[in-house]
Design a protein around this nucleic acid. Structure first.
Length: 495
RNA sequence: GGCGACGUAGGCAAGUGGUAAGCCAGAGGUUUGCAAAACCUCCAUUCACCGGUUCGAAUCCGGUCGUCGCCUCCA
């Protein structure tokens, strides 16, 4: 069936009702990575956003065909391969493997299809041939160019006008500076495939059109990707696809915003400010990255800074702790009866839990507003904590928080946040933060045992000295009411 | 030069015509052997600036200033 939703369409610059091409189905194609290096935090935003979006769509009953490609034949790959003295296809295969490692570690669902350029050459050749036959492309010196002047609607997505583009490059054989290569004649040291125009390789944009139409059809419901791809990549995709099929190429264009650096710079390797996913995941749980991305609207630019992940981790811990508190509550009475006995804080939990699904999902239904949706989760967490202050909540509160636990499950089902077992999550946090801070968990435990002994002996001065010492190392102690001491690591840089 | 987006508290960030969600930081309090966590209270008469429309605008319109992205590979 599919519950209706609205989504911002880059082409019309407005939020629109989504209308599927086929009842109940969503065909979505997302531009994946050009695989010549590891996935970094900027790429990861796109991956997480569309991963969550697809989960949400499926949860809402849509039959989703999710396709995300690998561009494994490309100038940058060839350049990198030549630098390393490696075969380009081998190099990209290596980074596809690395991407899958990172994607799995981030908890991303695998797309239904992950086409690669190197495995789609036939389709690319057919599409190119078709464009030549239709008069939209021309061959010149072993290369084939798309004739932008033959496509009047060129620029519909980005608002660009062909003749007003900046300092076009001068390439022999091109009729118009904005014409772009569908097929590039072979050059020494580059991979090549046979074609009717001689050996060569696909151009810059043709691969996505070929793969998308292969996997989904002439008309995609949604085409996604980073905002930086709007021009020329997506513009060119539209031109070549529509010139070929005479169908609308994509009904909705959904673009995620960029990660921006605090100084206004973009994350880039030359600046030495790239955090790749592999390294981030050594220090932070995967859901921490998800929360960082999903706490803002997917199409806004998102500032990256050193405290971004620590802050997200703090938020995530807050949510998990609230869930733990709720899960630890017992009792089997009627919820309404317990609430009546325990007062308005209990009523408040029930009230927020009851309206949760509606508020949370309607936020996602309106342009996938995860920021707004997550705010409701925090409201629920606070209500639980407040309720937990009641002495009888632990014994009798279970029925009261049942709805809240269902709400957390909903968050997990749609956004894949709060999807872990609480203790497993806490353990992961401890392991990763210890590694990040260079601490030995066993040593910490021994030190804490010594302090517990001092506390038993009521030697407060000794106990406090140990606390201060550990605190300086970033270890924060929590003395529980039952006499045990648990600990966690400082995550925001307050020191 | 062209195209586009954005400018909401100390930082981040929702809100797109009806009187400012949420997170972090900060101050005070409850709790605690001391802490931590949690909870409570406080923290934007105001949404870059200037005009306009309206009973009413952060939200619509016009202008000004500023920031960013794209126009070359880019999530």
């Amino acid at each position: 069936m599919g519950i209706p939703f609205r989504i911002y369409n880059t082409r019309t610059r407005s939020v629109e009702d989504f209308k599927p091409t086929t009842e109940g189905k969503v065909g979505i194609y997302v531009c994946g990575m050009t695989v010549y290096d590891r996935c970094h935090m900027g790429h990861a935003r796109a991956m997480v956003v569309f991963d969550a979006f697809v989960r949400y769509l499926r949860f809402r009953g849509w039959d989703v065909n999710f396709v995300r490609n690998f561009t494994d034949v490309d100038d940058k790959i060839i350049t990198r391969a030549n630098e390393l003295g490696e075969d380009p296809i081998a190099l990209s295969a290596r980074f596809i493997e690395a991407f899958h490692e990172d994607a799995d570690a981030m908890g991303l669902i695998r797309p239904d299809e992950e086409p690669r350029v190197s495995e789609s050459i036939d389709s690319i050749l057919q599409l190119t041939q078709s464009l030549i036959e239709k008069g939209s492309a021309y061959e010149s010196e072993g290369s084939v160019w798309f004739d932008v002047k033959s496509f009047p609607a060129y620029g519909q997505l980005s608002g660009q006008k062909v003749d007003e583009l900046k300092s076009p490059d001068v390439v022999p054989g091109k009729r118009h500076p904005a014409d772009f290569a569908l097929w590039k004649g072979v050059k020494p040291g580059e991979p090549a495939w046979d074609s009717p125009w001689g050996p060569g390789r696909p151009g810059w944009h043709i691969e996505c059109s070929a793969m998308a139409m292969d996997c989904i059809g002439h008309t995609l419901d949604i085409h996604g990707g980073g905002l930086d791809l709007v021009f020329p990549h997506h513009e060119n995709e539209i031109a070549q696809s529509e010139a070929h099929s005479d169908c609308t190429y994509a009904n909705y264009w959904m673009h995620n915003g960029m990660l921006t650096m605090s100084g206004g710079q973009k994350m880039g390797k030359s600046l030495g400010n790239v955090w790749n996913v592999q390294n981030a995941l050594k220090e932070f749980p995967a859901e921490c990255l998800r929360l960082y991305y999903l706490q803002s609207l997917y199409r806004s630019s998102l500032p990256w800074h050193d405290e971004a992940l620590p802050e997200a981790l703090g938020m995530l811990c807050r949510l998990y702790e609230a869930r733990e508190v709720a899960e630890s509550m017992g009792g089997s009475e009627d919820a309404a009866q317990v609430a009546k006995d325990l007062g308005e804080d209990a009523m408040k939990v029930i009230e927020i839990a009851e309206s949760f699904e509606s508020r949370f999902l309607s936020a996602l239904d309106e342009d996938f507003n995860t920021a707004k949706a997550m705010a409701v989760v925090f409201e629920l967490a606070r209500a639980i904590n407040r309720f937990a202050n009641h002495k009888k909540a632990k014994k009798r509160g279970g029925p009261v928080v049942a709805g809240a636990l269902a709400a957390f499950q909903l968050v997990s089902d749609t956004l894949a946040i709060l999807s872990l077992d609480v203790s497993a999550f806490m353990e992961e946090v401890k392991t990763k933060r210890c590694a990040a801070m260079g601490l030995n968990p066993e040593q910490v435990s021994e030190t804490i045992a010594a302090r517990s002994q001092a506390r038993n002996d009521r030697e407060w001065a000794t106990a406090d000295a140990i606390r201060v010492d550990l605190d300086e190392k970033g270890v924060i102690l929590m003395d529980n009411p039952d006499g045990t001491t648990t600990w966690r690591l400082r995550i925001t840089d307050a020191s």
